[in-house]
Design a binder for these strands. Structure first.
Length: 288
DNA sequence: CATGAGCGG
């Protein structure tokens, strides 16, 4: 709130001869975050008054507090404030544009969105466009989708007169003029073999399934029971997802298949709690 | 009796 004060004699002296007013002063109190501006104006009666305006800092106090932090590391001896040799202070707000799906943006027309969905598969693998989720894509093993694409490419190449405006989908993947990501295994010459670093699934070859467990058997119990046969990689005790109650069976993943085999021989038929355990080789999950 | 969970355009 601007407030007018009477113009003191001492200050009158500072005013210039020709009625010019003294320049405004401005001071900033760092701890309170309040800026005080004092300036001189003529009021309605033509008299000179001093107007002081106080304004609270708009930036959050947390910023002011951060400014008081000591610098450290290579910047330890830097003077306060940003070092212009390695820091850019952006005063203007800056806006970022997020593009969620470039293809969608490109194809954005007035056509009915439902029509678009119509001939679309429910799921489509991002890698091979197959009829499954990407995480399960076995493209390294079966290159059928890629080969289909290549065949399509050959067809369009053989028919140079056909549909000039229509881009061939295979051409896009063969020549990366679209900025689209192509996984290494699908890039040119990448058609052979799987990547050495990528195991396609968990190794289930040393996994056994234990059934007929009593409901109060816990994972540590299983650990104790099977440890004698060899190092164990993982134990999974099936539980109801909501109640946490054991479903009475479990999977034991050994490091070595031979240990698993001995565990089957040793524990199957073993009386545990009041039940007789059944142990067999596990089948990989997802066998519907 | 019984073959794990989760992520998701």
């Amino acid at each position: 709130m601007p407030e007018a004060e009477s113009y003191s004699w001492a200050e009158q002296v500072e005013a210039g001869e020709d009625g010019a007013l003294p320049p405004p002063t401005e001071e900033f109190n760092e701890s309170s975050g309040i800026k005080t501006v004092k300036e001189y104006k003529h009021n309605e009666d033509g008299k000179v008054v001093k107007v002081s305006t106080r304004e609270r800092r708009k930036a959050p106090k947390s910023i002011a507090i951060r400014k008081t932090w000591r610098k450290f590391g290579a910047a330890e001896r830097d003077p306060p404030g940003p070092n212009t040799s390695n820091t850019i202070v952006q005063v203007e707000p800056f806006y970022m544009q997020f593009i969620h799906n470039a293809e969608q943006v490109d194809q954005e027309t007035e056509e009915d969105p439902l029509a678009k969905l119509k001939n679309q598969k429910l799921v489509s693998c991002r890698i091979c466009k197959g009829d499954h989720w990407t995480t399960k894509c076995p493209y390294k093993d079966t290159l059928a989708p890629l080969q289909e694409k290549l065949q399509e490419g050959e067809k369009t190449a053989e028919a140079p007169g056909g549909a000039p405006g229509t881009p061939a989908p295979a051409a896009a993947s063969a020549q990366p003029k679209t900025g689209k990501y192509v996984p290494p295994s699908l890039r040119e010459g990448g058609s052979k073999g799987r990547g050495e670093t990528m195991q396609s699934k968990r190794d289930e070859s040393a996994t056994i399934r234990v059934t007929n467990l009593s409901e109060d058997t816990r994972e540590p119990d299983l650990q104790e029971l099977f440890r004698p046969f060899g190092p164990i990689q993982r134990i999974y005790l099936a539980k109801d997802k909501n109640t946490g109650v054991s479903k009475g069976f479990a999977f034991i993943n050994f490091h070595r298949r031979e240990d698993a085999a001995r565990a089957i021989a040793g524990v199957s038929g073993f009386g545990y709690d009041h039940l007789i355990l059944n142990v067999e080789w596990a089948k990989p999950s997802g066998t519907n």
